[in-house]
């Protein structure tokens, strides 16, 4: 198989890589670029553990070919914190104990940030529908919804 050269932006940095034509963006991120935050859960777009941002939309990286990323802007959970300073979503996930094993967490953080960027004050129902494609098998969703909403309140500057 002929490898394909790809230039893209990942978490604000210009990156170049070679990929196989049938290689997924998830495999490239994890195995070539060392960004192991996005996880492979199901590999069929059902679980959302591989959620990343691709040109402004949250997508399952397991259902994107790396070759499609030519010229694209990608961001992953690794781009959320600024140095040592965690993103409010990350802090509130810790404070609310919204994770146990953590496999689903990077995808949920990326998807939740995409929601709050569009809708800074979502209802419970809006959060639940938006995150319906992010499966968690151990925390239970209540804590996740609470963490997203309390992060949203902090980001809006609401007094609590």
């Amino acid at each position: 198989m002929k490898t394909i050269p790809v230039s893209a932006t990942v978490n604000g940095d210009a990156v170049e890589f070679l990929c196989a034509p049938d290689e997924t963006l998830l495999d490239t991120l994890r195995d070539r670029l060392g960004l192991t935050g996005a996880k492979e859960g199901c590999g069929s777009g059902d679980c959302g553990a591989c959620s990343v941002m691709l040109d402004g939309r949250v997508v399952c990286a397991c259902l994107v070919l790396a070759a499609e990323a030519e010229g694209a802007e990608i961001s992953t959970v690794e781009g959320l914190a600024q140095g040592e300073r965690l993103h409010p979503l990350q802090r509130h996930f810790i404070d609310e104990a919204a994770l146990q094993c953590g496999v689903c967490t990077p995808g949920i953080l990326v998807a939740a940030k995409a929601l709050l960027d569009r809708n800074p004050d979502p209802t419970d129902e809006e959060v639940r529908y938006w995150l319906a494609g992010n499966l968690c098998r151990c925390t239970g969703y209540d804590k996740i919804i609470r963490a997203v909403k309390s992060a949203a309140a902090e980001m809006r500057g609401d007094a609590r």
């Binding site: 059902d46 959302g48 949250v58 998807a111 995150l131 494609g133």
Partner: peptide
């Protein structure tokens, strides 16, 4: 159709 992630693609 599908999830938020699926609808993005």
């Amino acid at each position: 159709i599908g999830s938020t992630q699926v609808q993005g693609r």
